[in-house]
Design a protein around this nucleic acid. Structure first.
Length: 789
DNA sequence: TAAAGAAAGTTTTTT
DNA sequence: ACTTTCTTTA
């Protein structure tokens, strides 16, 4: 045990040893936070002899929970302990509580409730808007759900929301009606959305003394990770769980608060001491992760925030190399640069782990393609996750339906998929019947089968077929749900397999036999595999498996040893990589267009940039493209202001030719000549290969100036691989004579102008050009008689 | 009812 | 550009 504490610095040790009473740990990026949490938990169990079931650790993401669970397990195993405490996300904690006690809430819910993910919720909201006869243009489903979700996260019921709506605010009034209907629909379906998981748990703990005392008794020690991201509801939950004991330890970093848009309230961390009197505060400020240069660059960016207390993060790590900068002509070239760079790094260190961080998921595609092209295996976090694939969702909807046939959303999803002859008109009749009789869709099916008013025999037999399918699935599902002990217990994986076969999915896809169908079949096989894993882990039952599928939105079980991980800056929080690329550093992308102009939101973007930069241990690359396609149109894009907020002398230019950086430097009138000449790209050209590289590099620079000319030369050499690094565009003759966004043109009447936007191709190519003194003009390239300038 | 064609919206970040 | 959703047609 002594040894186990000796690996910690004094502040960390204090954080581990302070087990009693409220404790706030300000943990800067890379300050060994996870280590401290793991050690603290292990210390409680091994040294303080606290039973593991009395300890609760809460995180925001499954990834973080899993990571922490592993760390604690490992430490405890070393100490010969086998049991692990609850390490859960807020949402999964609430599911556990509600699956036990939701009936005591008295809102008509029972413990077999289903969880609606965002997609399900949007569907319900959409139907509500339609059924209320509200104009879809006034109220789009997604923003409406957003408003409802925000209200829920303020613990605002539909009544309260309606009361708070201004009589003149038509939109808000409309939303409150949707909110009310939405709530009643969820209740009818015995379903909870993501926010309800928290809200209903809070209500339950508030209203039931019995339940509150039960969990207060159970959780003697509570720990909350990423505390700066808690919203009012989550805070309330913590408050309710710590009424009896005050052994509450929270860990956070205000500089890493990046979820304000989701209702996170930074005052939770700023006012912790007043909310929990007698709280002790510990600051972890030594960074063990990154080089000094990386910390300086990141600190400089976040230092531009005004709403910041400011703290000093220091490291005893080496200074390290400068941040590397690359300007690419296009988003494709940027991706190619990154892929090639990773290959180069892996040549000198074969097992280096790299991360590519982007602002929005939509940017992932190009990087996926680039990685695939150079044969780098990669892991993609978030975005279109496995459980969001249509076929996977369909099968889970069948499973949900089997456990809860009254789940109308699941029913609507699968009633005609695979196609079984229940078309739009039949569904309409079904819906009307359900409404008239005041029953669920499932019950309405039975009614219609008995009295088929206005339905053809074909439709009736299709409905019958569907009804018996669901009943059949219900039989086998209950066996696996553990709800019926008389049945021989069935494995979850068997149920999943049976469902795929009996619904006809298997047959349909096999018959189709296209590439896409095969891929879908693979996905379903993957779902079966997930279930097999689940069975192996000895987890409880089908219900829990479905909960898991609903709450695990990204492919959380991502492999650590994959060379490249692609993800958003948000999902990178808490992770670290020796080699990090932050891409798409352009105004409107990062910072995102929705936040430029709003200083508060811009500060959040800056913190996000800070989070992204501090993921890097050794090498940090920052890249941007001067032009990229957005909604099919090519747009010129400006470098991110965050680039300019880094100390330029900490940046090394890896761009071919004249880049924004060289421009920025000259305009800042800093003299880099002495250092820059000696180390042109930070490499010394002292062997044949690198001299060749140098010339290739030069070749590309020349090529940019006179594109049509012998550009190929750089690519034909054996070391052509290297020159590809610097993203010269495919040298097609067409491309070379065209005017790309970001380039300058000369017009007979308007003079010199900057190409902003390019749409269409061939003769119909349209250009938007900005001419000083004349403004923006839209020109048809064919007729405008433009010249390069 | 299903398939083919047209129109519209899409991209902020997560459970 | 791309995908989803609505509309028309066989």
């Amino acid at each position: 045990m002594v040894d186990f504490l000796s690996s910690l610095n004094p502040e960390q040790r204090e954080a581990v040893l302070t087990t009693e009473g409220p404790l706030l740990i300000h943990a800067g990026a890379g300050s060994g936070k996870t280590r401290v949490i793991a050690h603290r938990t292990a210390y409680l169990i091994a040294e303080k002899k606290v039973p593991s079931w009395n300890i609760l650790a809460v995180t925001f993401t499954n990834k973080a929970a899993q990571e922490m669970r592993l760390r604690v397990q490992k430490l405890l195993r070393d100490q010969q302990f086998s049991s692990t405490p609850w390490v859960l996300t807020f949402h999964s904690l609430c599911v556990r509580i509600l699956r036990q006690d939701i009936e005591k809430l008295g809102q008509g819910y029972d413990r077999t409730f289903t969880i609606y993910d965002q997609d399900d919720s949007v569907r319900v909201v959409k139907n509500c808007i339609k059924d209320l006869g509200i104009d879809q243009k006034l109220l789009a489903p997604r923003p409406t759900l957003g408003a409802i979700s925000a209200a829920k996260n303020r613990a605002q019921s539909s009544n309260l929301y309606a009361a708070s709506a201004d009589y003149l605010d038509e939109r808000r009034a409309a939303i409150s009606r949707v909110y009310e209907l939405y709530e009643s629909r969820l209740r009818d379906n015995n379903a909870l959305d993501f926010d309800d998981l928290l809200l209903k748990t809070v209500r339950l703990l508030e209203n039931s003394k019995e339940v509150r005392e039960k969990y207060n008794h159970k959780f003697q020690y509570i720990l909350v990770d990423e505390y700066q991201d808690t919203n009012p509801l989550q805070f309330r939950l913590i408050e309710l769980l710590t009424q009896k004991q005050k052994n509450i330890c929270v860990v956070g970093d205000e500089d890493q608060s990046i979820y304000k848009w989701r209702g996170a309230d930074i005052s939770n961390i700023l006012n912790f001491e007043s909310k929990f009197p007698g709280a002790k505060t510990i600051r972890l400020e030594q960074n063990y992760r990154s080089t000094q240069v990386i910390l300086d660059a990141a600190g400089s960016v976040v230092g531009h925030n005004f709403q910041r207390k400011g703290k000093s993060l220091w490291t005893s790590n080496p200074r390290g190399e400068r941040v590397r900068y690359h300007q690419a002509p296009s988003a494709e070239a940027e991706a190619r640069f990154v892929a090639q760079c990773i290959l180069d790094h892996r040549e000198s260190q074969f097992d280096i782990r790299a991360a590519v961080l982007y602002r929005t998921n939509s940017q992932s595609r190009l990087f996926e393609e680039a990685m695939r092209r150079v044969g780098l295996s990669y892991n993609i976090v978030g975005g279109f996750s496995f459980y969001e694939r249509r076929e996977v969702r369909d099968i889970t909807a069948y499973l949900k339906l089997a456990l809860n046939p009254n789940d109308s959303v699941a029913l609507q999803r699968v009633i005609n998929s695979p196609p079984r002859g229940i078309g739009k008109s039949t569904i309409e009749i079904l819906e009307r019947r359900a409404k008239d009789a005041g029953v669920t869709l499932w019950e309405a099916i039975s009614q219609l089968v008995e009295q088929p008013e206005g339905l053809g025999t074909r439709a009736v037999s299709a409905l019958k077929q569907f009804r018996s399918l669901v009943k059949e699935l219900r039989q086998i599902s209950l066996a696996a749900a553990g709800a019926d002990a008389r049945h021989p217990l069935m494995l979850v994986s068997d149920v999943v397999k049976e469902t795929i076969i009996r619904t006809g999915y298997d047959e349909l896809l096999k018959l189709e036999n296209t590439d896409e169908a095969i891929a879908r079949l693979d996905n379903l096989q993957e779902l079966v595999n997930a279930a097999v894993d689940y069975d192996d882990r000895g987890e409880e039952g089908l219900r829990e498996f479905i909960d898991h599928a609903a709450l695990v939105s990204d492919a959380d079980d991502y492999k650590q040893d994959v060379p490249v991980t692609l993800m958003t800056a948000h999902s990178a929080k808490g992770l670290e990589f020796p080699l990090v690329f932050i891409v798409g550093l352009e105004q409107g992308i990062f910072p995102h267009s929705r936040s430029v102009g709003d200083e508060g939101e811009l500060e959040e973007e800056r913190r996000l940039a800070y989070v992204a930069m501090t993921r890097a241990e050794k090498y940090l690359y920052v890249t941007h493209a001067t032009s990229r396609r957005i909604y099919g149109a090519e747009l010129a894009s400006e470098p991110s202001q965050f680039l300019n907020e880094m100390p330029l002398d900490l940046i090394e230019d890896f761009s071919p030719g004249n880049s924004w950086l060289s421009f920025a430097r000259s305009s800042k009138q800093i003299n880099y000549d002495s250092t820059e000449r000696k180390k042109f790209t930070g490499k010394t050209y002292d062997n044949v290969a690198s001299i060749q590289e140098f010339f290739n590099l030069r070749g590309v620079q020349m090529g940019q100036v006179k594109r049509e000319g012998g550009l190929e030369a750089g690519n034909t050499g054996r070391s052509g691989q290297k020159s590809r690094l610097f993203g010269n565009e495919e040298p097609s003759a067409e491309r070379a004579t065209e005017f790309v966004p970001g380039s300058y043109v000369r017009h007979a009447k308007y003079g010199r102008g900057l190409v902003l936007r390019r749409e269409g191709a061939g003769d119909s190519t349209k250009l938007t050009v900005s001419f000083p003194g004349y403004g923006q003009k839209k020109l048809i390239q064919k007729y405008a008689a433009l010249e390069r300038d």
